[in-house]
Design a protein around this nucleic acid. Structure first.
Lengths: 200, 200
DNA sequence: TAAAAAAGTAGATCTGTTGCACCTTTAGAG
DNA sequence: CTCTAAAGGTGCAACAGATCTACTTTTTTA
């Protein structure tokens, strides 16, 4: 660990490293304070102070207070589309999406993750923001389903299906038993209400 | 008309009439200004001034700026539930709800109504608020469907169906052709994706 | 007719967010 | 290696929606 060290090929310049550090300092301070005292009881100015930056800087890194909480997971969209495109040959689109949504509903294992999810669940502003972000993938999923199923692009059915599939996340969140909620929703989407026995 | 007039049985006291008048003055001023200059270009203080009240009074009548626009239609929920409960004997629940949603998608006829809807459509804050209000009926619709279909209350399928049915409003709004969008969505809910021909 | 309850007011204040003018650090061209 | 332009950051004022406080007026009702 001497003084001089061979400069390995750096992933980024000093500038970008510092920028990332600032960003992380802000997000970390925000999350810590939110978990300690609750989202609504922490002000922007406090977070900026705790991270030792100005509020102007804070808002250059994050577009809103809600965004402070969602600093990760840049490519959920890619994994969602992969679920459709890279599914096993014999698996149907809906079966693949069902598996994907079920897997999503299961990540509450980790203790840290659990309190993070609880923060979101118990803060309406954060739940709504998360849902809005999630629904942004509607267009991309519609396209993926359209292609994978060979449906003509002007048929609105794929758009409806994509919308409903993404909305199962809301059903899971609202339900006491997310797993069963997702299963029922997908059963409904696959076979239709007319197949549920109650012919009404 | 003369000076003295027999006091007919009044629907409400002077107090409540005045209160209603104030409320109407605020809502009218707000809507007029919003239509003239756009939702985001009109401030709360301006509206209060135009209605000749204080901002404190304004917020005693309406909980938020968005709420100023939605001053009518207190019982959309009742008509929604009626669509299920009072449907013709031989009509299925989903057929009744389909008709209801199709009727909803058609009210753009009136010229005044049209610019009102255009105001909402072109203002994200208002679209989201409207959608949130609309989705508040999810619980009630779930219950109505559960009862009308005789499904056991713990089965989450009815909740999923109610959610999806209400969400067809979002699909209609987003689509260039609301009628067709609603039809496709309901076809999907009735018969399932597996019945759409593409067995994928 | 007195007192309780409701509606309204002015104005300060809080909170998220933006704009402005300015300074400091870094990257890159010459 | 230096000079410059751009990017990151700052401090502060300001804005808009929303809330709070203390106070006045009006209406109801006992």
């Amino acid at each position: 660990m001497g003084a001089t060290q061979i400069r390995e090929p750096q992933t980024q310049g000093r500038r970008e490293r510092k920028k990332a550090a600032t960003r992380k300092a802000i997000a970390d301070a925000a999350l810590r304070l939110f978990l300690e005292r609750g989202y609504d009881n922490v002000g922007i100015r406090e977070i900026a102070d705790a991270a030792d930056v100005s509020t102007a800087t804070l808002f250059k890194h994050f577009p809103s207070k809600e965004a402070l909480v969602f600093d990760m997971d840049t490519d959920r969209e890619a994994s969602l589309l992969d679920a459709v495109h890279k599914r096993p040959k014999e698996q149907s689109i809906l079966a693949a999406l069902r598996d994907y949504m079920l897997a999503r509903a299961n990540i509450s294992q980790d203790a840290e993750m659990a309190q993070f999810l609880e923060l979101i669940r118990s803060t309406p502003a954060l739940s709504e923001y998360a849902h809005r972000m999630w629904m942004r993938h509607e267009g991309a999923l519609t396209q993926a389903i359209t292609e994978a199923s060979g449906t003509p692009p002007e048929d609105p059915t794929c758009g409806a299906l994509a919308h409903f599939v993404l909305e199962t996340a809301a059903l899971a969140r609202a339900s006491g038993d997310p797993r069963t909620a997702v299963e029922s929703a997908f059963d409904l989407l696959e076979h239709g209400w007319n197949a549920t026995g109650s012919g009404v």
